[in-house]
Every structure is written in structure tokens, then in C-alpha cells.
Amino acid sequence: MDLTLSTCFIAVDDHDRALTFYRDVLGLEVRNDVGFEGMRWVTVGVPSQPDVEIVLEPPLADPGASAADRAAAADLLAKGMLRGVIFRTDDCDATFARISAAGGEVLQEPVDQPYGVRDCAFRDPAGNMLRFSQPRS
């Protein structure tokens, strides 16, 4: 069996703010922007990985979800309790400098980890944690 990753999802509470961050700060390309039943999904991706997409979606992207479930998901997002994404970079320090200069909320400055990477971490505008990892030789 040959499997490849095609899509992952990140919950956002404001697609326009998210786009400014993912497109303008991180340099991801916008591949799709779709609305349905009052919700919006924006697909972005790294230009060098055309087969892998990140969907920026509402906190609970289910048209049948109850108001209570939507509120619970929005609360978790606001607390930064939802999972994020780890990006690989060839220069952690330069990536950190670029994102912090653009106003990214720093969670961790670049540090050498005992598990073989140098990494740093930020929050996106919705509160999701994003890590940027550089393998050490």
C-alpha cells in the first residue's frame, strides 16, 4: 500500500486574518476559497508541495452541528487548545526572524531539541500553534 498525505485542517475564526498570516507572512499559495451554508473554507499550500493542502476551516465545520457544539469548539480554539501543524524549514533562525518581524505571536524562540531538530513556535491569528522545525545534522 502506498499512502501520501493530501490534506490537513486548521480551524480559524477569521478567514481574512488567517489568509494574511498564511499567505502573506508564511508565503503559502491560496488554492481554493469556497463558501457553503454560511461557512467558508480556504485551501492553502506550500508552492513546492502541490499535492499537500491545508484547509482553513471554521472551528466546527459541520452544518448539522448544534449551537452548543459550535460554541464549545470556538471556546477551545480561543484558548489555543486545538492541534496545529509542524512545518519543516531549512533555516529555523531565518524563519523565526521573518515571522516575528511580521508580528507573529512567539511561543518559543529557536532552540536545539534533544530529539534532533532546531525548532521554534508561533500562534496563528486564531491561536493555533505552528512549529517550524529544522533537522540537525
Rank of each mutant, 00 (worst) to 15 (best):
A61G: 12
D93F: 04
V106P: 05
V55E: 09
A97C: 07
A65F: 07
R83D: 13
E109Y: 02
F87G: 10
G104M: 03
V42F: 01
D93Q: 09
A94K: 12
D69M: 15
V111Y: 05
A71C: 07
A68F: 04
R40N: 04
A102Y: 02
S66M: 11
P110W: 01
A102M: 04
V52C: 10
G116E: 05
T89C: 05
G38F: 03
L76K: 15
A73D: 06
D93H: 06
T89A: 06
D62L: 12
G45Q: 04
F96N: 03
D112R: 13
A71Q: 14
L107F: 01
V85Q: 06
I54H: 02
A61W: 00
A73F: 04
A102Q: 03
R98K: 15
A74P: 04
I86S: 12
N32G: 15
A74I: 06
A67M: 11
E37Y: 02
V34Q: 10
G35H: 08
G103A: 04
L60W: 01
L76P: 01
D62A: 10
D75Q: 13
G35T: 15
G64N: 11
E53N: 11
A72C: 02
V44Y: 00
G84I: 06
I99M: 05
L56G: 04
P59D: 02
A72P: 02
L107T: 06
V34P: 00
A72N: 11
L60C: 14
T89V: 15
P59Y: 03
L77E: 01
L56V: 09
I99Q: 03
G80K: 08
D75H: 10
R40I: 09
G84W: 02
A101G: 12
V34R: 11
K79W: 00
W41L: 12
C92K: 02
S100T: 15
V52L: 14
T43C: 01
G104F: 01
G116K: 05
F36R: 13
A73M: 10
E37D: 14
V106D: 02
Y115A: 09
L82Q: 10
R98A: 15
A71M: 08
D62P: 01
A78P: 08
A94P: 07
G104Q: 01
D93G: 08
V111H: 06
P59E: 03
Q113W: 06
V55H: 09
K79T: 08
A72G: 09
P59M: 07
I86E: 08
G35V: 11
D33Q: 03
L107V: 14
I54P: 03
D62H: 08
R31F: 10
W41A: 07
T43L: 00
G45S: 05
C92G: 03
A78H: 09
D75N: 12
R98F: 01
D75K: 13
Y115M: 09
P110M: 07
F36H: 11
Q108R: 14
T95D: 01
P59I: 08
A67H: 10
A102R: 04
D33R: 10
A72Q: 11
M81L: 14
A61V: 06
A101T: 08
D90T: 15
P47W: 01
L60F: 10
D33W: 02
R40K: 05
A61H: 13
M81H: 13
V34L: 13
D75G: 09
I86R: 07
